[in-house]
Design a protein around this nucleic acid. Structure first.
Length: 283
DNA sequence: CGTGCCCCCTGTCAGC
DNA sequence: TGCTGACAGGGGGCAC
């Protein structure tokens, strides 16, 4: 669910308020969302000071500093899965959106950071800087960073025959794109979801690069897309849903040419496209 | 390196 | 009203 724009919105919201605060206690309500042994997780993060809240791909990354033995740095990586939320509230004044708390971080200023997850597909991991580096290296480039440019995108696309929609969902290729923004970017670029990655060349690569950036930045500006579960750290909904051109719009007219939007299934997941603006590969 | 298929889990909605 | 099946933003593992 939450993709890059949603994770970015949450990270920005938390970055404004939580750095400098310490974790007083950790309450693990649903141990299955913890990566690895839960006692080790709790012991690792307890008493840590939060230094920074960032993002890598769709994951939230909190940089923590342990007071003992000697200001050891570790990273709290939060993958929100399909229905995860990170909500900041006041102790004893849980927001009404908190119906399925999985982990509560009680901070030293009477606030609580709640990891909330109905389906519990999300995961929380407390890892060393070294392990974080290894994990991060396995992910593709950040699509909004200078490292992601048309030339390197073209290079990467040439090495795969995967349908482009599947290619975009592969976090090792580009980090942070999920099913909503993959479908949206392909519509903006005029590329069919089943087009083999290596068939995308020249001007199409430039259009795809631009479409990915445009869709992601516009979605960040809108605070993300709330279809159902996603909320900002303050519990607000994202408003990019009104800007979706094809996702979830089967049968509705294409905003560009009025042809009804079609829905297909690719690798078991829905894909939406305009059959006229996004001509199928090979015909 | 691909693909499809299954699983994790809960909630919602359409159809009967 | 209730039951059943399909489906949902993610990702990992499996066989082929």
């Amino acid at each position: 669910m939450p993709e890059l724009p949603e994770a970015e919105t949450i990270a920005r919201g938390l970055e404004q308020v939580v750095p400098g605060r310490s974790i007083r206690t950790v309450e693990v309500i649903r141990p299955d969302v913890i990566e690895g042994p839960q006692p080790a997780f709790s012991a690792a993060v307890r008493s840590c000071r939060i230094r920074k809240v960032g993002r890598r791909g769709k994951n939230l990354v909190l940089t923590l500093e342990s007071p003992s033995p000697s200001l050891v740095r570790l990273r709290l990586v939060v993958n929100l899965g399909m229905s995860g939320r990170l909500l900041l509230g006041r102790e004893g004044h849980a927001a009404p959106v908190v119906t399925h708390p999985a982990v509560r971080f009680h901070l030293d200023d009477d606030s609580v950071l709640v990891y909330h997850d109905v389906r519990r597909f999300g995961r929380l991991a407390a890892i060393s800087e070294e392990a974080y580096g290894e994990w991060s290296r396995r992910l593709g480039p950040e699509p909004l960073s200078p490292a992601f440019d048309p030339a390197s995108l073209m290079d990467s696309l040439q090495r795969s025959r995967s349908p482009i929609r599947s290619w975009l969902l592969d976090q090792a290729k580009v980090a942070g794109i999920g099913n909503i923004y993959a479908n949206e970017a392909l519509w903006h670029a005029g590329i069919h979801p089943r087009s083999p990655a290596s068939d995308i060349r020249g001007e199409s690569v430039v259009r795809l690069h631009g479409a990915i950036r445009r869709v992601l930045t516009d979605a960040i500006d809108a605070g993300g897309t709330t279809l159902k579960d996603y909320r900002t750290a303050d519990g607000w909904r994202g408003s990019y849903g009104g800007s979706l051109r094809v996702y979830g719009r089967e049968g509705l007219p294409c905003p560009e040419c009025d042809t009804p939007i079609e829905r297909g299934v690719l690798s078991g997941r829905s894909t939406f496209f305009c059959p006229r603006c996004q001509p199928p590969p090979g015909g």
